[in-house]
Design a protein around this nucleic acid. Sequence first.
DNA 1: CGTGTGTTTGGTAACGATAACAACCCGGCC
DNA 2: GGCCGGGTTGTTATCGTTACCAAACACACG
Lengths: 355, 355
Amino acid sequence: MTTSEPGDAKRPTRRSSNPTVHDVALEAGVSPMTVSRVLSGGKNVRLEVQERVARAVETLGYHRNENARSLRPGHRSGLVGVTITNIANPYYAEMLRGVEEIASAHGRRILVGNSNEDADLEKQLVADFIGRRVEGLIVVPSSAGDAAHLQLERLGGVPVVLASRAVGGVSADTVLIDDVEGARTATAALLAEGHRRVAYLGQRSVFTGRRRLEGFTVAHEALELTPDEELIRVGQQDVGSAERAMTELLDLADPPTAVFSANNRNTVGAIRAIVARRRATAGTGAGGGGDDIRVAGFDSFDFADIAPVRLSIVDHDAGDLGRRAAAMLFDRLDGGAQPVEPRVLELPVTLRDLF
Amino acid sequence: MTTSEPGDAKRPTRRSSNPTVHDVALEAGVSPMTVSRVLSGGKNVRLEVQERVARAVETLGYHRNENARSLRPGHRSGLVGVTITNIANPYYAEMLRGVEEIASAHGRRILVGNSNEDADLEKQLVADFIGRRVEGLIVVPSSAGDAAHLQLERLGGVPVVLASRAVGGVSADTVLIDDVEGARTATAALLAEGHRRVAYLGQRSVFTGRRRLEGFTVAHEALELTPDEELIRVGQQDVGSAERAMTELLDLADPPTAVFSANNRNTVGAIRAIVARRRATAGTGAGGGGDDIRVAGFDSFDFADIAPVRLSIVDHDAGDLGRRAAAMLFDRLDGGAQPVEPRVLELPVTLRDLF
DNA sequence: CGTGTGTTTGGTAACGATAACAACCCGGCC
DNA sequence: GGCCGGGTTGTTATCGTTACCAAACACACG
């Protein structure tokens, strides 16, 4: 386009839209093919031409259209879809960072969706991701609703890795936390200290909740004890409801002397309730009471170490969960021929005393 | 094409790859065009044909290729790019959720990248996002390095909204927390209580840190006071270093009677140092000392309300930050003709006394 | 029965990029 | 001079989808 003939009105100048290889080619006085060649390494292109093209790219602010590229056969989209039940949960945020880290190292970008524990929304997200030709999916499956949309054949052959939770009826690569063992160890520690009335705060409807309750029960059974049903509270979703549940427990005629909580929201709620009770009884001069309730909880959280109670935490690395899940996915994507059987990985946890 | 003639070997059956409109058309015995019509609403297509196509879609597990669709003129990619300096930071995670919420409501998906405070990485992310034809960008700019890549003309006209931090030399829509006012109010509250030696714990290299220090200073100047340089500590990145800095302050000949900290890590560190000192002096029977150090801090955190000191918090909503940034972006994308001037929004903060 | 109106359907081209092929240029060799 | 091989460049066709046009069809009305 050094000289602008009146005849070449084929492509009217469109300043607004993104420039294409064609525009760059005009600017550099070469063919689109040559531009393409320069952009993919410049093999077999004269140096002088390469420089001319580079200048044109710079001048026009050209960016290769990846969507168009991914259209060509054999080309990959470079995208991985991630659906999470709640991005704002620091635990999943940390996991997401792990996924991003590995994806980035493999030259992929991540598409993120929030399923909000809604299977329908999750289904839409997955369908949309497949429509965008993601190469793979990492899914924290929602606890509610059926999961038929995660069947391999429904995904058009796109590999999926389930993270944090398994799904009945779906056989796919899965990375889990060792929920049962974590809950068992923590509960066993409380029992070993002599506590015999240990409460449980958690969930039963969610996969991890069920497993953690199982660990709680197993620890009791190992000592031929049976947990008191009255001390088992399930269904608290947030800190507020957890605090109320703990307060109820403290109000019992025969209150617990220790509590195991199955996630960080419940732990924080329990600690709040204990501290509130401590302040109230301190005023009456009663002294003892809720003061020395022992707490053990699954998941770490910010500033757990300044909690004003004797606290142990079942710690696990969310970032590692994400990295492992992503690694599993890229193993299938970039690794050679794979075994077809899905693999299940259970990540270990550690019990930390924070006092 | 119900009967398969030997001659029609044009498109060999490819079970492995994703089916296309063409495949669906063959299956349903119609033309690709008709399939396309059915998929976009089915206007002017016989009901019987629509059902046939729907069945074929179901049978083959067809998903429209969004990348191919977005190629067509006038069509949008439905993507928004988000770069964050640290996804794992709960504050930005919450922000991300806000962005996702609004994006989702506008029928868009989000591409997420972690810049890790690295301007080069951020630049690559932005370039890649533009290559994928995102309709807009939401960027938490990295504090280090230059930001030429965020210039509007460099972005090929893709609108960008800066979140949480502004960037010198870049004029773009920006959503900020009202750092100056938050720090000013909190500091003013401490001064109003009669404190005259108020320490500052925070940062000076980061945008928000500078602004919060400014608010701290302004509050002093309003009362014709000058903050003691000795009481200003900057550069603490984590709880540990903040605790050490606070301990140093307590060891001064003329220690502060109150402290304003510019973020939650510093607040927690300060509280730790104060509590440690209190325990130490309690043993000596000294009584007073670090006992009644007053604390005010930016950012909330778990257990802020049960902290064992007189604490005020400058509270702000990260989710709101994300929602506002996204709303600003979609205002430009979906709203009609816009004013060209970039807008800057400063979100209000509230001072909460937690005692 | 012819014409007009409206519905349903299919062919063609284009979006942006690039493999595959073809064409060209150049120097070196017989 | 004519031919060959290597480097360089351009042309064509294709990826999956859909807007636009044209064709085919149904039906009503004069």
